[in-house]
Design a protein around this nucleic acid. Sequence first.
DNA 1: ACATACCTGACTAAAATGGTCAAGTTTAGA
DNA 2: TCTAAACTTGACCATTTTAGTCAGGTATGT
Lengths: 141, 141
Amino acid sequence: MKLTSKGRYAVMALVDLARFDNINPVSLRDISLRQGISLDYLEQIFSKLKKNEIVKSIRGTQGGYVLNKNPNDIKLTNIFHAVDEKVKTVQCKKESKKGCNGKATKCITHNLWDELEVHINTFFENKSLKDLLNNNKETRV
Amino acid sequence: MKLTSKGRYAVMALVDLARFDNINPVSLRDISLRQGISLDYLEQIFSKLKKNEIVKSIRGTQGGYVLNKNPNDIKLTNIFHAVDEKVKTVQCKKESKKGCNGKATKCITHNLWDELEVHINTFFENKSLKDLLNNNKETRV
DNA sequence: ACATACCTGACTAAAATGGTCAAGTTTAGA
DNA sequence: TCTAAACTTGACCATTTTAGTCAGGTATGT
């Protein structure tokens, strides 16, 4: 299973973006400074977010990024998926007709990982950017 | 967050062990053959399981491993913990009095990861080796 | 005594991670 | 029109983690 800094950065950056994009597009430079994330790395991440239509870009001076959807419609599952954080448990190989061990049957724990995956994905599907915004306002600095 | 093959192997091996240890200790060689896991790797894993008192070892000919507890009392969380699969989301650094970014405050998404961690741990704490055994009998080959 | 099986630690190839670096293109505004 | 801000793209890389292998042990039942 993968759930690393890239995913966390993506979420942090989007929450930041959501808080500031009412007025103007938000530049990655600003996000980088506020959140302490490398600019170059942010560019990689936003490239993926854009491809997945989570954000829109505006080029040129005063340009930046804006959300492409309502914060309520951006679920965590969308964000993680966009930056290739596959919320997949370690997989048994799904090749041809063979089972998990190269044997003809499913491995002993196959069902377990399926269950876990559902469990985690449920969490992510029920959590939107808006939820995080609200949550953050409460404990705002 | 880490959840890799080592954890999966540990679970697979323990389920296998639980199914056969009523009669005799089970040798790693047998588990290796049945589950298709490298013997050398299994030895590393069982060394940890033993340190965490999940299994007991019996040396010498006809030796092997047996469970050290009732399958109902071996939760997944114990197993993962034993083999160093820390079910931890990527952490903000917890150094000194500083917050997550080296700033004085918690990072925007701090609460989110805490929630997620609880969510996943709950799943693991409620799942025992016995559950897996039963589950496996149903779909037994 | 000897085969079986546990035990331990060092080592390693390959992949993933978390970036950096370089060289663009686009566009607002002076 | 010139320029600087900001997006765009792709290559590159050091470090860490993963998933093992290898080479020796030591203990013990028969």
